[in-house]
């Protein structure tokens, strides 16, 4: 059982890997989950609930004290700004394996309720020079250790947590878009229009670690799936890749896990043995997304239309 949320304990790497099939304590915060289990219970007076340490318990329906959406949001906001103690998340993207399947983009867009033209993660078609072969490059937010976006935010809406993740609080964001100008990697996008959703969806408690519901007039970007990390799972993009492109893990443990094969390797060794690098180190932003060069590409490059329609 993942104990990521347990204060002061931290979790071992093995816990982190195994916990893909269990729920973490953080999930109890979701009122939706509680009610879903309540419905599944079937009995009239008793409902099943998930306890803080991951056990399922039965209680009388009348005794059930539902957490109000406001309280849920408040808790999300508080824990979302602190992050997961003792962690230092890192991602490694193996460019030699990417075949432009775009499953990462689809999973990400579904989780974060993005429009087809919005990309927390964007698979680019790259060519370094006229003499070299093109390749595909998935580009999430680099969660820089010296983030230019965080520096310029006037209201502390975007911030860096102790576990290295850069998040946006869209309950705070004033929509000045300075961070979009400041980000050299075009990782950020703006909600230019009202995101399409029902009134009910709109009234869900805001989850800062998922940035859902998205809000008009605020900035959004890749969150390293902070909500999944809290429950001990790998990010949406990492676990949906069919080609083994992504490794994700904890720098403090010097271990990263491949989202497709489940294989865990030493982060430092992976980078050293494969000439891993980060983009535009000269900018001094210290990105926390590493790349392995696009050597021995398995499939020939098939260019795809990179434009999504005329106008939005």
């Amino acid at each position: 059982m993942g104990k990521i949320n347990d204060k002061g304990k931290g979790s071992s790497r093995r816990d982190f890997l195994k916990s893909g099939i269990t729920f973490g304590a953080g999930a109890i915060a979701g009122a939706g989950l509680v009610s879903a289990i309540a419905n599944a219970g079937g009995k009239e007076n008793k409902v099943k609930v998930l306890t803080g340490d991951g056990k399922i318990a039965e209680v009388n329906a009348s005794e059930l004290n539902m957490i109000s959406p406001g309280e849920v949001q408040e808790k999300n906001q508080k824990q979302g700004r602190i992050g997961l103690p003792g962690k230092k998340f890192v991602m490694v993207i193996d460019l030699s394996r990417c075949q432009n399947a775009r499953k990462c983009m689809a999973a990400c867009n579904a989780a974060h309720e993005l429009q087809p033209y919005q990309h927390h993660i964007n698979t680019l078609q790259m060519q370094d020079s006229a003499d070299s072969a093109p390749y595909y490059m998935p580009k999430p937010c680099f969660h820089c250790d010296n983030p230019p976006c965080v520096k310029v935010c006037p209201v502390d809406a975007t911030f860096k947590r102790q576990d290295g993740i850069v998040l946006i609080d869209n309950e705070r964001c004033i929509g000045c878009r300075f961070c979009i100008s400041a980000c050299p990697y075009s990782a950020r996008m703006f909600q230019w229009f009202e995101p399409e959703m029902t009134e009910e969806q709109k009234n869900r408690p805001y989850n800062i670690e998922l940035n859902v519901p998205q809000k008009r007039g605020t900035v959004t970007k890749c969150l390293f799936s902070a909500d999944r990390l809290r429950v001990g799972k790998l990010p949406y993009c990492v676990s949906s890749c069919p080609n083994g492109v992504y490794y994700f893990g904890d720098k403090n443990e010097d271990a990263v896990t491949n989202g497709t094969t489940g294989e865990t390797v030493l982060f430092s060794e992976l980078i050293r043995n494969n000439a891993g690098y980060t983009y535009f180190e000269d900018l001094g932003t210290k990105p926390q997304v590493y790349y392995l060069p696009p050597k021995d590409r398995r499939t020939p490059f098939k260019p795809v239309e990179d434009s999504l329609g005329e106008k939005i």
């Binding site: 790259m126 050299p184 075009s186 434009s307 999504l308 329609g309 939005i312």
Partner: peptide, 12 residues
């Protein structure tokens, strides 16, 4: 920008 502008509508 540092990276090419791709996978967005033409008016971007």
């Amino acid at each position: 920008p540092q990276f090419p502008i791709q996978n967005v509508p033409k008016n971007f």
